[in-house]
Design a protein around this nucleic acid. Structure first.
Length: 486
RNA sequence: GGCGCUAUCGUCUAACGGUUAGGACGGAGCCCUCUCAAGGCUCAAAUACGGGUUCGAUUCCCGUUAGCGCUACCA
């Protein structure tokens, strides 16, 4: 039975790296008919926050990622303590009565002097240990790393291959804090054993911790699960992604609020450190499930290429644009609604459905609706420079002539883009101006700028009334003496 | 400092020990075209360095360098 878990600690918002870890676990479970478990690793009471927990749920809900079983470590303290008890009873752990390091110097001396264990504490007699404990003296419970009986700890990583580390290089790590609260290593392993996790898929920052975990599993009398460590996601400066240093750009909700599609986000992060080994890049959720395998995961860290000017990796934005383009229009219109409302447009569904096909291949983020669809929702148009009305190789007189003529045509023409196209082309021929010279003034009059969706489709959506009103306004902006009456 | 992991275009990546080292994003240019997009085509751009092994190394081994991680009574 294949069982995987995602075990975040609620000490910050769900960031892109954690999301990817969840996704890889989820993909592996769904691919192989396994069970996905969400376990909140909240043993560090000091740093846990409700906001963080909410952020994790919020992010996962947005991505529409589900789990089959749910646990909170804080509700499983008894299990962790009894597991520690078991290890202690087997003589594989000992009490360390050394007071916690308070000063930085003390900690540093540990680091410099390759601290492995305190011999006096490791070798304390059972009698004295029991006596001091009974007297109420505080202690941490440490794992007694075997140093004589074996020389190294090994395991096979499904991504990084055979791993080994000398027992002489592993320190006697803590299992229980002096408060009696289990440490991460203890709680995590006790839970992984109890929940019968078959594959631990997690960040590479845990690779060296795994030697300790193997020791714990063995001490518990359990065969260790399979391990698969993931290359880390790093910032362009080479440092590990962190909210502290990089701010909200690493938060999943930042992507959501900027107008990313969940599927595009998932697609993007999946290709950071994993490849389907063919040249496919734009993949649906189902295609990802079908293509996913641990063999496709590579070993080197991947950079999320954001900058201070642009918080999103250009490739992530491209993925989003790709997914927007292939999305059914009905769905896209629906997704666009809240972003249009946020832009202050007060859009209705029917109007949005008309506008959507005109902007679908012109937006990269859902929030781009604000800058590309404004002309359909705002009335009147924001002010613009009347010089924009003047066509290439033309002058204000030409602009005025063109607009006057267009106005006449549009007063009676049927507002369907095919007929508008034919009518206005004919008008251009009649006036002996190039089509570009004919269309550009109309476009600017109607959109307030030169860059816009195709003209005739735009007019069709805008309708006769708005179109004529905007042309009249443009005409008023042109110098009066140059206006040609007919 | 010790230990571990990693190293292909700017970025994400592909390449049974044999390829003109491939694809994508981004960049430049051309085409298409009512503007913008989209689309099509083209160009620039990489095997960190040094030693081996081999008829032949991006690929295997060693070293150097660099980056990252762990080295807590954080996770």
């Amino acid at each position: 039975m294949l069982r995987v878990r995602f075990a975040p600690s609620p000490t910050g918002y769900l960031h892109i790296g954690s999301a990817r870890t969840f996704i890889f676990n989820w993909l592996y479970a769904r691919r192989n008919g396994g069970t996905m478990i969400l376990r909140i690793d909240d043993t560090d009471v000091e740093r846990n926050t409700q906001e963080s927990l909410d952020s994790i749920y919020e992010g996962l809900r947005w991505l529409d990622l589900s789990w089959d079983e749910f646990y909170r470590q804080s509700e499983r303290g008894e299990l962790h303590r009894s597991a520690a008890e078991t290890i202690f009873a087997k003589g594989l752990a000992y009490r360390d009565f050394t007071p916690a390091a308070v000063s930085e110097d003390e900690e540093k001396s540990h680091a410099d002097g390759q601290w492995l264990f305190n011999p006096a504490m490791r070798e304390l007699s059972k009698e004295e240990s029991d006596r001091r404990a009974a007297a109420g003296e505080p202690f941490v419970l440490r794992f007694r790393v075997p140093r004589e009986s074996r020389t190294e700890v090994t395991f096979q990583d499904l991504v990084y291959g055979a791993q080994s580390k000398a027992t002489a290089d592993i320190e006697d790590f803590a299992l229980l804090r002096s408060s009696g609260v289990p440490t991460y290593h203890m709680a995590s392993c006790a839970d992984d054993a109890d929940l019968r996790i078959s594959h631990i898929i997690r960040g590479q920052d845990h690779l060296t911790n795994t030697f300790k975990h193997v020791l714990i599993f063995e001490a518990l009398g359990v065969t260790p699960p399979n391990f698969a460590h993931l290359p880390l996601l790093i910032a362009p400066d080479g440092s590990k992604l962190s909210k502290r240093k990089h701010g909200p750009v690493v938060s999943v909700t930042t992507y959501r609020d900027a107008g990313f599609l969940p599927q595009a986000f998932i697609n993007f992060v999946c290709l950071l450190g994993w490849s389907p080994k063919d040249d496919r890049e734009v993949l649906s959720r189902q295609e990802l499930v079908d293509a996913f395998s641990l063999e496709g995961i590579n070993q080197s860290n991947a950079t999320v290429n954001f900058t201070e000017q642009d918080p999103f990796d250009p490739k992530a934005v491209w993925f989003n644009a790709e997914h927007i383009r292939t999305m059914p229009q009905e769905q896209l219109a629906e997704q666009l609604l809240p972003f249009a409302a946020a832009a202050g447009f007060s859009p209705d569904r029917a109007k949005m459905k008309q506008v959507t096909p005109l902007i679908q291949e012109r937006i990269r983020l859902l929030s781009d609706v604000k800058t590309t669809a404004d002309i359909f929702f705002l009335d009147p148009l924001p002010p613009y420079d009347s010089a924009e009305l003047i066509p290439q190789k033309g002058d204000a007189a030409m602009a005025a002539t063109v607009l006057e003529r267009a106005r006449q045509v549009l007063e009676t023409a049927e507002f369907r883009h095919e007929t508008l196209d034919a009518a206005l082309r004919a008008a251009a021929a009649e006036l002996k101006v190039k089509t570009g010279q004919m269309f550009q003034p109309i476009r600017v009059a109607v959109c307030g700028r030169k860059v816009a969706p195709p003209l005739f489709e735009t007019l069709e959506v805008l309708g006769r009334e708005t179109t004529l009103k905007r042309i009249d306004e443009a005409l008023r902006m042109l110098p009066a003496p140059l206006r040609t009456e007919n």
